[in-house]
């Protein structure tokens, strides 16, 4: 680092006690912008994903329009590919053998020192700007106004599969039994609406790779994971501009 060694005595000279709240906020902002720059194009820090540093709860509420604003944070390095999440999803949501709502992808890194394979769980990103919802001709898929989950109305689906084409995350498949496209809905019908706090996959995850909660609540685990600057947080395929609500990080 070019910044030199940290010396607590310097702070005394800066009269840190007299710094206004606004200056503190500015300082925090700059710090996050720098981590964003360091992280580069594919890995994005919290600042690039959320575009803003939240200094007050009002700002958070503005940025996260849903209440609760459901979100998942995947701590990628904790995933061990035990597939308990997949199993739990299939059982809970009656997913047929030919389809899936969530999957675990494998990436081999032969040059890596030590562990040479990592696992990346993927699912519907419940995007804030969902391409599938725009494309559906009959509003069979829609963004729920209250909790922001991208939902399916199974009775309306005409099976044209344009949402499958529009989804940047391969999160959709045609379910023969339901005569409709099916997708992850954060277990809203099978668990959350029945009082459960977690999705089936999160509850089944033994390592804490999957974390689920309300992103608009500063006390929630997902809020704390996303709003920190020590570890980079990113989303998949940010170039599409779908504004996903599934975040990825390591550690």
């Amino acid at each position: 680092m070019k910044h030199g060694k940290f010396n607590p005595d310097d702070l005394k000279e800066e009269k840190s006690n007299s710094l206004s709240i606004i200056e503190r906020r500015e300082f925090l902002r700059i710090g996050l912008v720098i981590t964003g720059v360091f992280a580069g194009g594919t890995i994005l820090s919290a600042i690039s994903n959320i575009n803003k540093v939240f200094a007050s709860t009002e700002e958070v509420a503005e940025k996260y329009p849903y209440k609760p604003h459901y979100s998942m944070v995947i701590r990628q390095n904790l995933c061990i590919d035990c597939e308990r999440c997949l199993e739990a999803c299939i059982i809970t949501n009656d997913v047929p053998e030919y389809g899936y709502r969530t999957a675990i992808l494998q990436r081999d890194v032969p040059d890596a020192i030590g562990q040479k394979r990592e696992f990346i769980p993927v699912l519907c990103n419940q995007c804030n700007n969902p391409p599938c919802v725009r494309a559906c001709p009959v509003k069979a898929t829609y963004k729920d106004k209250q909790h922001g989950i991208v939902m399916m109305n199974y009775d309306k689906c005409i099976g044209c599969k344009v949402c499958v084409m529009a989804c940047p995350y391969n999160a959709r498949y045609f379910n023969e039994e339901k005569h409709s496209i099916d997708k992850c809905n954060f277990c809203i019908d099978t668990r959350l609406s029945k009082g459960e706090k977690l999705t089936a996959c999160t509850a089944a995850c033994p390592t804490g790779a999957r974390n689920f909660g309300d992103l608009s609540n500063p006390d929630s685990e997902v809020y704390k994971l996303v709003h920190q600057i020590e570890k980079p947080v990113w989303v998949l395929r940010p170039e599409v501009g779908a504004k996903p609500n599934v975040f990825y990080m390591k550690g």
């Binding site: 725009r134 494309a135 559906c136 001709p137 009959v138 509003k139 069979a140 009775d155 309306k156 689906c157 005409i158 099976g159 044209c160 599969k161 344009v162 045609f174 005569h179 409709s180």
Partner: peptide, 23 residues
């Protein structure tokens, strides 16, 4: 090709999505 073509006739009329090119 469409899985539920008859639904299309109904919901194209009563549940149009004006942002959809297919509509």
């Amino acid at each position: 090709d469409i899985e539920n073509p008859f639904r299309m006739a109904i919901y194209n009329a009563i549940s149009p999505n004006l942002t959809s090119n297919i509509w």
